[in-house]
Simulated scan of single mutants.
Amino acid sequence: MTDWVAILKEQTAIGDQMGREVPQMLANADISEAQVKTLFSALEKQAEFVEKLRMALEKFGHDFSIIKAAERLEELYADLAASVAEKLKAMRK
């Protein structure tokens, strides 16, 4: 049986790391448009994965606090993707 809570914990640790690293990457003056596009794509894929994880947690009846943690992780990835999209938009001007 899949340990959804363990996967959530692992993904939360990755999300915390991304939350620290993405702003640093975007602040780097040498980052290229291609790198920003790749970062955006990776964040979108991660957001999709976390959405599926949240749905699985809901389906299997996990506690509200677990579901809420998954929702916060979804929001984190959405916020990171939005900041990357803004950077890309600014680079294209």
Rank of each mutant, 00 (worst) to 15 (best):
E75A: 09
A6P: 06
F64A: 07
K37T: 14
P23D: 06
A13T: 12
L88I: 06
I66W: 01
L57H: 10
K52S: 11
I31P: 03
K52L: 13
A81C: 02
P23A: 07
M25T: 02
M55C: 04
F64E: 14
R72I: 02
A70W: 00
E58H: 13
Q46T: 14
L39F: 03
G19E: 01
A90S: 09
L53G: 01
Y77S: 00
Q11G: 08
Y77A: 00
S41K: 12
Q35Y: 01
E71S: 14
K68T: 14
R20T: 14
L8E: 04
L26F: 01
A29Y: 01
K9M: 05
I31G: 02
S32E: 03
Q24S: 09
A47P: 00
E71G: 08
K89Y: 13
P23I: 07
R72M: 02
I14V: 15
S83T: 15
L88H: 12
E74Q: 12
Q11H: 13
A82F: 07
S32W: 01
A85E: 09
F49E: 13
G61T: 09
E33A: 14
I66L: 05
M1H: 12
E33K: 11
L57S: 08
E10T: 10
I7W: 08
S32T: 15
A70T: 05
L76W: 01
A90G: 06
I66N: 03
W4A: 11
G15S: 06
T38C: 07
Q17R: 10
F40R: 14
Q11A: 11
Q46E: 15
K93G: 14
